[in-house]
């Protein structure tokens, strides 16, 4: 019987990672923190219910807090695993050997990505008991939870693709990690901040025009708001607004910034996942191309290093 061929890098990464303390400590910290937040939230909810009755909107709030916390933790964990994936091999001097095997660079990248996603899946599944506490009182369906899991997976691939790309580009893991966290901050906060700044500048401009006799008009960023499709924070916002039945309010916020078709705001969650998945695919392709030693542009830096290294 033909054996199932699993990506060798993925298999090796799984084997070595389960033997390291890193994964055990991550699991402990991750679930410990979530459990603590869950405990405090539920304790507060039930304590207040003793005096003023059960407020079901509070239950949804607890769900939102848990989900956002978990999402944030995953965004925090993913760069730690992916930004060292290739640069770590380079630092350990194991990358060269891998590249002389018949393994394609894209297979190496895929193996590294899958192992990071496996870690995220492990974290998500291990935290499901805490999240499923919200079922005990109702308000959130299994479908809602599944949508959330899909979001986490896409975000893991999306954030992981940045980590992998930077770990290919930069020789040092420290630099790669800084850049990966940096880009996530830019995507999460920078995109919103940029649009708000542009919005406020436009508002100032129109206000100044109206003072000088012109007609004031509301600032409209138009399709500029599509930049937020790259923001995982807005994606989880769209998911939660949808699950709470407040998609209209989410649409109003987007429309307040720029006029876009209704279809976009209505299906923001799905569209943003598609945009992020496509971006991740492009980044991973680029990472695989750059990893190929014969396709990578030999810069002066590489030359200097080679001159130092060559024993002949």
């Amino acid at each position: 019987m033909k054996q199932l061929h699993i990506n060798p890098v993925y298999k090796k990464e799984l084997k070595t990672s389960v033997r390291s303390m890193k994964i055990a400590l991550t699991l402990l910290a991750y679930n410990g923190l979530l459990a603590l937040i869950g405990l405090v939230s539920f304790y507060g909810l039930f304590e207040s219910a003793r005096y003023s009755g059960m407020d079901h909107s509070m239950l949804l709030m607890i769900y939102a807090i848990l989900v956002i916390m978990e999402f944030g933790l995953i965004l925090f964990v993913i760069p730690a695993y992916t930004s060292s994936a290739i640069s770590g091999e380079r630092e350990r001097q194991t990358l060269e050997i891998l590249l002389t095997t018949s393994m394609k660079p894209s297979q190496i990248i895929r193996g590294k990505l899958f192992s990071s996603i496996s870690t995220v899946l492990l974290l998500v599944f291990s935290s499901l008991p805490v999240l499923s506490l919200v079922f005990s009182i109702g308000g959130v369906s299994l479908g809602d939870l599944m949508k959330y899991v899909v979001l986490v997976l896409v975000t893991a691939v999306y954030a992981g693709s940045f980590g992998l790309l930077f770990s290919v580009i930069f020789k040092k893991t420290t630099v790669s990690t800084v850049f990966t966290y940096g880009i996530l901050v830019v995507l999460g906060i920078g995109t919103v901040a940029l649009l708000l700044v542009i919005y406020l500048l436009m508002d100032q401009y129109y206000t100044a025009q109206s003072i000088h006799g012109g007609q004031y008009q509301n600032p409209d960023l138009g399709y500029g708001v599509c930049l937020l499709l790259f923001n995982p924070g807005v994606s989880i916002g769209a998911l939660l607004f949808g699950q709470f039945g407040s998609m209209g309010e989410f649409g109003e916020v987007i429309h307040a910034l720029g006029t876009v078709p209704e279809f976009l705001t209505k299906h923001w969650f799905v569209i943003s996942l598609i945009v992020q998945a496509v971006t991740a695919a492009l980044l991973l392709t680029l990472a695989a191309t750059l990893l190929n030693p014969l396709k990578r542009n030999e810069g002066k830096r590489a030359g200097k290093k080679e001159k130092r290294k060559i024993g002949g």
Binding site: Q3, H5, P8, R92, T94
Partner: peptide
């Protein structure tokens, strides 16, 4: 290569099997 590293948390046989699996040799 002249300078090379090895993987942490991997036994010698597992190290060999890892490279064997790259060439499709398994089990």
């Amino acid at each position: 290569p002249d300078f090379f590293g090895v993987y942490d948390n991997l036994k010698a046989l597992e190290y060999m099997e890892f490279f064997a699996s790259i060439y499709g040799i398994e089990g």
